[in-house]
Computed example of a mutant assay.
Amino acid sequence: MVAGWFSGEGDDFRLLGTRCTRCASVFFPREDNRCRNPGCAGDDLEEIPLSRRGHVWSYTDSRYRPPSPYVSDAELPWEPYALIAVELESERMVVLGQAVPGVTVADLAVGMEVEVVPGVLGEDAETTWTTWYWRPTGVRA
């Protein structure tokens, strides 16, 4: 888990961004130092929860094991996964993420509604690596 990128559980799970109090630009991943908008000199940023839902802007599949720092068990065969670019409902910004396990590119279409849900990338005896997934709103785990 990357500290400060998301919080909550179940229906309260949200990605966390920051908003410039001067120009209202929203950032994800979060920005804690200064506004990244080149037309703004603001440096007062507030944490905000981002929209839970959005629409598929684009998608593809990942057919190779990515390098570190991505966590995957080298002992297990690689399982491809769908990667989705989602335009958030309110913020109108695009956020990338994996589809929930079991959802493939064959299940996706540009414009379909998805929601952010918590997920686990991997775990061992000491650590659970958490993340977020995008799930089509018509799919329930």
Score class of each variant (00 low, 15 high):
39 G>E: 15
129 W>I: 00
73 D>S: 10
27 F>Y: 08
104 T>H: 04
36 R>P: 13
128 T>F: 02
47 E>I: 15
86 V>Y: 01
13 F>S: 04
102 G>N: 03
28 F>S: 07
108 L>G: 00
24 A>Y: 13
73 D>L: 06
56 V>Q: 03
57 W>C: 08
7 S>Y: 12
127 T>N: 09
33 N>D: 13
38 P>N: 11
27 F>R: 01
38 P>K: 09
36 R>V: 08
83 L>Y: 11
30 R>V: 04
6 F>D: 02
68 S>C: 08
90 S>I: 14
33 N>S: 15
84 I>K: 02
84 I>Y: 02
126 E>K: 12
19 R>A: 05
38 P>T: 07
36 R>M: 11
27 F>P: 04
71 V>A: 07
33 N>R: 15
69 P>V: 03
18 T>D: 01
105 V>F: 02
100 V>W: 06
69 P>Y: 09
40 C>L: 08
72 S>K: 11
5 W>M: 13
101 P>A: 05
87 E>Q: 07
7 S>W: 09
83 L>E: 08
116 V>W: 00
1 M>E: 13
26 V>R: 03
97 G>R: 02
118 P>K: 01
108 L>N: 00
15 L>K: 05
41 A>H: 15
20 C>S: 04
91 E>F: 05
37 N>I: 05
113 E>R: 13
90 S>V: 15
65 R>G: 09
74 A>D: 12
4 G>L: 07
40 C>Y: 05
84 I>T: 03
76 L>F: 09
116 V>C: 00
14 R>K: 03
107 D>L: 03
92 R>I: 06
55 H>E: 14
58 S>T: 13
25 S>M: 05
92 R>A: 07
34 R>K: 15
56 V>W: 02
110 V>M: 04
89 E>C: 11
14 R>V: 02
86 V>D: 02
4 G>R: 07
118 P>W: 00
128 T>Y: 01
41 A>T: 15
29 P>L: 05
36 R>G: 12
23 C>D: 14
124 D>P: 01
41 A>M: 14
107 D>V: 06
49 P>L: 09
89 E>Q: 14
64 Y>N: 10
129 W>M: 00
6 F>Q: 08
95 V>A: 02
36 R>Y: 08
2 V>K: 15
15 L>E: 00
8 G>D: 03
7 S>P: 07
117 V>R: 01
60 T>E: 11
62 S>Y: 13
2 V>L: 14
